[in-house]
Structures are given as structure tokens and as C-alpha cells.
């Protein structure tokens, strides 16, 4: 579904991603784990068209999207939940969700999706007219995920959904991620919380200072001594 081939990304003189390759098959949850500053967020931003790679190719469902404008990539069914939630603080919950369906024209379809999102996140329904900036951290994360679902993505990119959340909420968010995947959305998940990420993902990549250092089935990686030592605190 998504194929990233040998991309190099620079921030000025800084070489942020080096010969980075990754693949996501339809129906999977793939996770990209790594420490702070490894280039995890950079890779997601590059995939969704917010940053351009210097070389290499990104294809999505067979289309080359390496130079496609970000809004066209969203239209093709690839949607990102940015890091740190980034909801529209001055808009209401409903307005935030409506922004997620910004590129859709079918009013009835939007309403149906809205109902689905509310079914998945009942707490958002309770707070439908509340200003989004006044929601709790966990609710804001749910809103950010719900908002991304409003565009009915085929592939959902999640950037650190556990960031700054209490452990119990982290568990809840991850079980929701699993549910979303089971309902048919492919997921690429970037996480620092390697334990949680490996427990829900099918496959995983480990990123270290801009380079993929290992990859494989999530279960196997979770068992690997090296990974345990470096990321799982074991």
C-alpha cells in the first residue's frame, strides 16, 4: 500500500533521514520506534507531503506521491494525526471534526462518518459544542484521531499518540487504534513508547539517528535482546 524507497531528507545541513525505506501492506499496523530525534516525525511528515525528500521515491497505492501537494495526498486517502495533538483550540469539537472532512463534498456521507466517530468516541459526543482547547489531554488526542478519521483514510499515520498521556489513557488510545485497524484502516504508528507500540503492531521498524537499523515482526522484535536493552528497559 505504502512504499518508501531510499529517501534522504535534510533540514538545511542536517541529514535527518538516511537512505530510509519502509513498506506498509494493506490491513497492517506497522510501527516505527526509536529514541528522541531519531527522525520518526520527520519520516511521517515526509510521507504526508509536508517535507520533501532530496531523493528517493514514495509510492501510495501504486501512485508516485513524492512531489504531490499535501492536500492531494489527503484526498488520495492518506491522513496524518500530527504530533502533540494539534487540535484547533478555538473551534468546537464538532467544528474540529468538520474540518477533518474538509476535502469531502458528500454531506450525507460526512454525517455518517461523524456518527461513526461519535460511536467510537462517546466522550466527544458529550462535548460536541465544547471549545476543543478546554478538553483534557486524552480527549484532545481522541479528537485528533477522530478528526483524521473524518476524511475516511485508507492509511492513517499516527505520530506519538501516547505523548503526555496518563498510562491508563495510553492503554485506551492503543485499544482504539487496534479497533480502527480491525475496522479496515491500515495504520502506520510512530511511537516512543516501544512496549505499547510493539504490542499492537504486526510489524515494526527501528530507527536510529535517521537510519533504519532493524525491522521485522513486532513479536520477534519485542523478544530481541538488543531491542529490549535499547528501548524496552529490559
Amino acid at each position: 500500500m505504502l512504499r518508501v524507497e531510499n529517501i534522504d531528507v535534510y533540514y538545511g545541513a542536517i541529514h535527518a533521514l538516511k537512505d530510509f525505506s519502509l513498506e506498509v501492506e494493506e490491513g497492517e499496523i506497522v510501527t516505527l520506534i526509536g529514541a528522541n530525534g531519531a527522525g520518526k516525525s520527520t519520516s511521517l511528515k515526509t510521507i504526508s507531503g509536508l517535507i520533501r525528500p532530496k531523493n528517493g521515491i514514495i509510492t501510495f497505492n501504486g501512485h508516485n506521491i513524492t512531489q504531490t501537494p499535501a492536500q492531494e495526498i489527503v484526498r488520495m486517502g492518506l491522513s496524518q494525526v500530527p504530533e502533540g495533538r494539534r487540535i484547533f483550540a478555538n473551534l468546537s469539537v464538532l467544528e474540529n471534526l468538520e474540518m477533518g472532512a474538509y476535502l469531502r463534498q458528500d454531506k450525507r456521507g460526512i454525517k455518517q462518518t461523524l456518527e461513526k466517530v461519535f460511536d467510537r468516541f462517546p466522550r466527544l459526543r458529550e462535548r460536541i459544542h465544547q471549545q476543543a482547547g478546554t478538553l483534557s489531554g486524552g480527549e484532545q488526542q481522541m479528537l485528533a484521531i477522530g478528526r483524521a478519521l473524518m476524511s475516511q483514510p485508507k492509511l492513517l499515520l499516527l505520530d506519538e499518540p501516547s505523548m503526555g498521556l496518563a498510562p491508563i489513557l495510553v492503554k485506551e488510545i492503543f485499544s482504539i487504534i487496534k479497533e480502527i485497524n480491525e475496522a479496515g484502516t491500515t495504520i502506520l504508528l510512530v511511537e516512543q513508547n516501544a512496549n505499547m507500540a510493539l504490542s499492537v503492531a504486526h510489524r515494526a521498524y527501528v530507527l536510529e539517528t535517521g537510519r533504519i537499523v532493524s525491522s521485522g515482526a513486532a513479536k520477534e522484535l519485542a523478544e530481541s535482546e538488543q531491542i529490549k536493552k535499547a528501548y524496552l528497559g529490559g
Partner: peptide, 10 residues
């Protein structure tokens, strides 16, 4: 409110 998020909304 949030330029990056707006961009990811398309």
C-alpha cells in the same frame, strides 16, 4: 489555530 494541523487536513 494550527497551521500544521490545517495542512494535514488537506
Amino acid at each position: 489555530d494550527n497551521e500544521l494541523a490545517a495542512e494535514t487536513m488537506g
